[in-house]
């Protein structure tokens, strides 16, 4: 297995622990590679590897969330999976722990964020390798891609669907939401 594939596996394994969704669900969003690239781009490769190392299963694994250095990144990864949004990391944190500086700010354009999944020359950063544009300002919060919004875990967590996408079928809103693994207060909800 190549180094990158191994890192991607470890990133998904950590994310499964941190989000309480299964690895199958996370792969199933199709966003794993794109999110890994986002984290590498925004926070830096080394700090991500530090996080994955510190979060290995064991008594100390949970402590990464309260760790001064790793906590904000760990929490950001959870929010990323749930909402598809990369949230701005605190500037003080960035200054202190040395997140990477963007070399070539470029305008983000809608419709240019598809994940191509091909390796491109190394001169491009992880985001460009994913076929996406860099953010204009380093500290901005942004939706990672059009697909990231629709694949947010929050929709499944509340038994809903993203507004304007993944239409659930006319009239389906007239029955109680179905939440995976939750039987509800009144027996089995929904129609299945």
């Amino acid at each position: 297995m190549s180094g990158h594939a191994d890192l991607l596996d470890r990133f998904v394994a950590f994310s499964a622990e941190a989000t309480a969704f299964s690895a199958v669900d996370l792969w199933g969003t199709g966003q794993a590679a794109s999110y890994l690239a986002t984290v590498q781009e925004e926070a830096g490769d080394q700090i991500l590897r530090d996080l994955l190392e510190a979060a290995r299963p064991g008594p100390a694994g949970d402590q990464v969330f309260t760790d001064e250095k790793l906590g904000p990144l760990a929490r950001n990864i959870v929010k990323l999976w749930y909402s598809g949004v990369w949230y701005e990391l605190p500037p003080q944190w960035a200054a202190r722990f040395g997140a990477p500086v963007k070399a070539v700010p470029a305008q983000r354009r809608p419709g240019q964020h598809g994940v191509a999944g091909h390796s491109l020359p190394d001169s491009k950063g992880p985001l460009e390798q994913q076929g996406r544009q860099r953010t204009p300002a380093r500290c901005a919060s942004y939706v990672v891609s059009a697909a990231a919004y629709t694949e947010g875990l929050l929709w499944r967590a509340i038994g809903a669907h993203p507004s304007g996408a993944k239409a659930p079928g006319y009239g389906s809103w007239a029955v109680p939401p179905e939440i995976d693994g939750y039987e509800g207060d009144h027996g089995k909800g929904g129609s299945r």
């Binding site: 993944k166 239409a167 659930p168 079928g169 006319y170 009239g171 389906s172 129609s191 299945r192």
Partner: peptide, 13 residues
């Protein structure tokens, strides 16, 4: 069949 449409979206997912 109207409800089956909802089911089809589950199948898609």
């Amino acid at each position: 069949l109207l409800e089956a449409v909802w089911q089809m979206f589950h199948v898609r997912d």
